[in-house]
């Protein structure tokens, strides 16, 4: 759906993005993740045909964003950062105007406006003036605008900016429901958002793509550093000896817990899951086990790991 190759955008004096290449398949929900100023908005603006790239090409649905921008613009629904709207218009009037602008016929625009009002939960406020709406509702108006002409690709720049947790959940739900029928590209610097909604993550930092994978795969990259936690009631020396004797165990730390339980933390040398081995050990010895878990690294850990500047890394 999207093919970007060697995309570079330079402003006077600094490079916003450099040699960006990535691809997005049809029907995917892709999260564009990066700290502020990483080049997310610039990339999205180029894809939405708002500004040209300095060099490189980007194609949406097979059409070049620079030379065939008309075809591209017909196929995308774009919501810019900060969601600009005409605050003097009424919700329904605005969506109707946008639908007509995007080339929908009079009858079709009426139908589509009804559909997106329903879809975005705006039916109750359709006659209100946009300037009088709360942030959450305005964001939904922006979303409704992006959806109104049933675009193949939906580009949302920070769709949950400035919303409260409840509203964020609703917007997320909405975005999730768009997957499959539409391709969605959202940018954000909120990690749980990507973890929950996207099936593909692009991590961008200082104008370069640092990682591109499914969220779970990205987490697996760090799983080696994942910890196994177990609480076992057993004689201490025996426990220590037997745990250290397990295959692939790198480190074992044992601390007394309450009653006669011991809190054990283990790290493994390879990708193997130690939990099974621990369980069968406990069963074999007739010990008691009350907790056994593996802490998986969150996407946040991955993100910090990948985007941390070198200088800081030394400092820690």
């Amino acid at each position: 759906m999207i093919e970007v190759s060697n995309l570079t955008k330079r402003y006077a004096g600094h490079t916003a993005i450099e040699n960006l290449s990535f691809g997005v398949k049809r029907g995917e929900i892709v999260g564009f993740l990066g700290p502020n100023g990483a080049g997310k908005s610039t990339t999205m603006r180029i894809l939405a045909c708002y500004q040209p790239a300095t060099s490189g090409t980007a194609k949406v649905a097979g059409f070049d964003v620079f030379t065939q921008s008309w075809e591209v613009r017909k196929r995308i629904g774009y919501m810019p950062e900060h969601n600009p709207l005409y605050i003097d218009m009424r919700v329904r009037e605005y969506l109707k105007f946008r639908a007509r602008l995007k080339g929908l016929s009079w009858r079709r625009s009426r139908h589509r406006v009804d559909v997106v009002l329903e879809q975005c939960g705006l039916t109750g406020v359709s006659k209100k003036i946009i300037g009088h709406l709360s942030m959450g509702y305005r964001q939904r108006v922006g979303l409704a605008d992006a959806l109104v002409h049933e675009p193949e690709l939906i580009i949302l720049d920070e769709p949950t900016l400035g919303l409260d947790p409840n509203q964020i959940r609703q917007v997320r739900q909405l975005i999730k429901s768009l997957g499959g029928a539409h391709t969605v590209l959202i940018s954000t610097h909120i990690l749980p958002e990507v973890e929950m909604t996207c099936n593909q993550v692009l991590i961008i930092h200082e104008g370069r793509i640092l990682a591109s994978d499914a969220p779970t795969n990205l987490q697996n990259r760090l799983t080696r550093q994942g910890l196994i936690t177990a609480e076992i009631a057993a004689p201490l020396p025996e426990l220590k000896r037997r745990l250290e004797a397990l295959d692939d165990v790198e480190q074992v730390a044992i601390a007394p817990s309450d009653q006669n339980y011991f809190h054990c933390t283990l790290t493994s040398r390879s990708q193997t899951d130690l939990r099974l081995a621990i369980y069968s050990l406990v069963q074999q010895e007739g010990w008691q086990l009350r907790e056994l878990s593996r802490s998986r690294p969150t996407l946040e850990d991955v993100f910090v790991h990948i985007t941390r500047p070198e200088k800081l890394e030394e400092g820690y």
Binding site: R45, C49, P80, H82, L101
Partner: peptide, 14 residues
């Protein structure tokens, strides 16, 4: 100033 210029010119109008 409002930012709507961006939504306007990214719509399929010349």
């Amino acid at each position: 100033a409002l930012g709507t210029f961006e939504t306007l010119v990214t719509a399929p109008i010349s």
